[in-house]
Every structure is written in C-alpha cells, then in structure tokens.
Amino acid sequence: MFTRLNQMLYPSSANPKFMPSDPWSFICFHVLHTVLLVFHLAYSLVHFVQYVAHRIKIRGLAISYHHNRTPQLISHDVADLTKLPNHLAVIVDLQDGSEEGGGVEGLVAQISEIAAWCCGTGEIKQLSVYERTGCLKSYNIKDVYKLVEEGMRSYYGSEMPSIKIDVPHSGAAHPTGESNGKVVNRKTDNKNDLTIHLLSEEDGRECLVDLTKTLSELAIAKKLKPRDITVDVIDEQMNMLVVTEPELLIVFGPQLDLQGFPPWQIRLTEIYHQPDNDAVTYGVFLKALQSFASCKQNVGK
C-alpha cells in the first residue's frame, strides 16, 4: 500500500533512497525535483545548440573532404599524417531496412566504402567491422565478398586490391587460400592488401566465456594447470580466435557507446567519436586518422 502511494507521488525516475514520506520532506523533494526538471530543460536547450553546431561541423567536413572515388586523392589526403594505424576497427549501426541506405544492403555498401578508403591510405592492412547484431554473418560469405568487391570496383576499376573477408566466430574466410585440408593461420598471411574481419556481439564476452570452458576442459584433462592461465596465454588465444588489438576505433554513431565491442581487444585502442554523427562518411574517417596521427601512445609512462 505504502509503496503504491510512493509510486504515485514520486516520478518513476526518482531514487528510492531519497523518497521521504513525511509531508515536509515530501514538499522539499518536489521543489528540488522541479528545479532538476528546469535544469534538464536548460540542458536540453544547450544540447540542441550543441547538436546544431555538431551537424554544421559534420557538413563542413563533408564539403571540405571528398574522395571523388579516386584512391590517389585519398592517399594525398593522408600523405602528411605522421602515422597511420595498421589495424583499424569501426563500429557501424544497422539502419532501418525501409530507409534508403539501410538494412543489410546498406551495411555492405558501408563496409565496401570503408574498405576502399582503407586501401586508399595504403597503410591499413586490417579492418575490423563491428556490427552488434551480426546480421551479416548469416549470409554466405562469398556473396558478401562479391558485393564488397563490386562496391570497391567503383574506386579501383581494373586495379583492384586483393581483399579477404574473415568471420572469426564461424571460422569462415574467403578467399581461403590453401584449401587442401590444411588450416591456414588466418592472422599471419599477409598476402592480401586488406583483410576485413566481421565482428559482432558474440565475439566479445561470449568468446571469453567459451575460452574459459575450453580451458576448464583442458584443466580437467590434466593438460593445463589453472595456475598457468596468464594474460599472455589468453592474449594469444584471443588474437587467434577473434582479432588482434586494433590501434584505432571509429564509432560511427550519434552516441559514444561501444555496444559490446570485444573487451579484450580495446586495451590501448584510440577511440574516435564524432558527436551526433549518424552516417559513415569520408570526412569523419579522415578526421579520425588525423586525430590518431596527433596523439601519442605511452604505455604506463
């Protein structure tokens, strides 16, 4: 009965810890809560102004940088950057399928665009694309490969760089390279200009849980002592099972949210996020590379 009353008298967002029941504190609470609502209103106004400023900035980026689908222009844009990542990760959102550029098709188009830019820089050899739901993984990898290649062809024409798509969770890869029954180490062959890793939520915590299961089985089978489980052992396994640590992560979404990106892999990763951006654009990509070039990494020092 009392809790029902409290529910009626207090907003659902209120902290139950500070829900007094005597009349005086009740009045106080509501006066203070009203002030909070005024603050929220003020903040929403500030937020709106910020939003407009961010959108103008993004528009400005789009105007000042354009790739014109020519790799030479891309490599010219990154020419004066002091360093570029070798392994880039991006978080992309699955857009509503009914909108233009949405759905799985839109996603593949985005991936092929980013892949084309990465090849254009000439330095980025690995691209990890994180999409939370993993909807791409249910498609045949050869079809995805074909679509990505098609998209990249508009940049490269006949001088197509060799790419490879790899789905760590299922172990599928295309092209597979040697196929005479021998398992090729996915991470060590560097014959391709760009390797694209498709990641989703299951490559994060779930993968660590699976690793724990495997290690427990090994321990029970007396092949491994629990004491021997160290950071290095796990790191080696994670590098093999998922991907290595990316150097730069670009979040192409309005909010800075990692959405469950594999936790083991983001240890020292530089995270770039353009606030209120909602599209995968070349301007943001370039801005991220510029900020990566200007930051300095110092582990522990």
Partner: peptide, 15 residues
C-alpha cells in the same frame, strides 16, 4: 583529453 581506456575496466565499460 586522452581517448583510450588504457586497460581499465574493459569488460565493465564496453557495454
């Protein structure tokens, strides 16, 4: 102004 997690609470903060 550093935009890294620097090996701090990765499991706790990625979601």
């Amino acid at each position: 102004g550093v935009t890294r997690l620097s090996d701090f609470m990765l499991w706790q903060s990625h979601k």
